[in-house]
């Protein structure tokens, strides 16, 4: 059976203000989905809610992994169940070396029942794997000794997120603007890497990928099976790769005109935000 991440009628609020207003989205392993939409439409919120961010309140709807509702699970459980997000602005953890951080993380995700204090992946095996992945991503080995995201440039953070995805081998990955802040060559490398990693995940099955982006370059090597457009906290239209190209080239005027109710909601949400 193909594994599935299914979001049904998802309503989400922050401090009582609605941000998602009934999102429906089904991702099967092996599929690539692009999620586009203007700033403030709720794309990053959707990613954070799928990961279990405690600041967002699910007011209605479900998030199901293979038929099981995971909307009450904490982020740890979701990560260990194989869901991953590459963050737009990952947090720095000063004093903790990238390699140590990832050795713990990798052990936890590959051995979901692990309790704190139990054995980690053997150092030798971990080092070998980490070095291989870093070579694929053309990262300097020095990187492993730096503190997690501490003083990283925008590009370094994004590559570090991709490295983590490569090591954790998730079933489902959300990439939140992994292309922003990267130059053309870096986006190309990122795009190739994601495609490569997507084919290599655990159990031989490919990843299910949700790419949140404003551009279409990341999609060069990761042709989306579906492109979704989000506006005013809803997915209003779904198409193929041609929709991504259209939105990148022409913007969202046609979308706003076609979905006036969502366009009004976008306005309201922007005003609430401004207050």
């Amino acid at each position: 059976m193909t594994e599935t991440l299914k979001i049904t009628n998802l309503h989400v609020a922050v401090e009582g203000k609605p941000i998602l207003r009934g999102v429906n989205l089904t991702i099967n392993r092996g599929e690539t989905h692009a999620l586009m939409g203007p700033n403030g439409s709720g794309k990053s919120t959707l990613g954070n809610v799928i990961m279990g961010h405690p600041n967002y309140e699910v007011t209605d709807g479900t998030i199901e992994l293979n038929g099981e509702d995971i909307s009450e699970w904490d982020a740890t459980e979701r990560a260990r169940a194989g869901i991953f997000m590459a963050f737009q602005r990952p947090m720095a953890i000063p004093g903790v070396k990238m390699a140590d951080f990832l050795r713990h993380a990798t052990t936890n995700v590959r051995n979901p029942a692990r309790k704190e204090g139990e054995e980690l992946i053997p150092m030798r095996q971990f080092r070998k794997e980490l070095t291989e992945k870093m070579e694929q991503l053309r990262m300097d080995t020095e990187f492993a000794r730096r503190y997690v995201n501490d003083g990283f440039s925008g590009g370094e953070m994004k590559r570090a997120e991709i490295l983590q995805m490569a090591m954790l081998r998730p079933k489902f990955a959300i990439l939140d603007e992994t292309d922003s802040g990267l130059d053309v060559d870096a986006v190309k490398l990122a795009s190739q890497s994601i495609a490569q990693i997507g084919k290599e995940t655990a159990g031989g099955d490919q990843m299910g990928i949700l790419i949140i982006t404003h551009h279409d370059k990341l999609l060069d090597q990761n042709t989306p099976d579906f492109t979704h457009v989000m506006l005013g906290g809803k997915i209003v239209e779904t198409g193929g790769v041609e929709l991504a190209h259209e939105l990148y080239t022409d913007g969202y005027d046609r979308i706003r005109a076609s979905y006036p109710e969502a366009a009004v909601a976008e306005q309201v949400m922007a005003e609430v935000e401004a207050v």
Partner: peptide, 14 residues
């Protein structure tokens, strides 16, 4: 920071 680490499979305590 805690959330970020938890999305990498860390328990909150860890």
């Amino acid at each position: 920071q805690l959330f970020y680490a938890m999305t990498r499979g860390y328990t909150r305590q860890e």
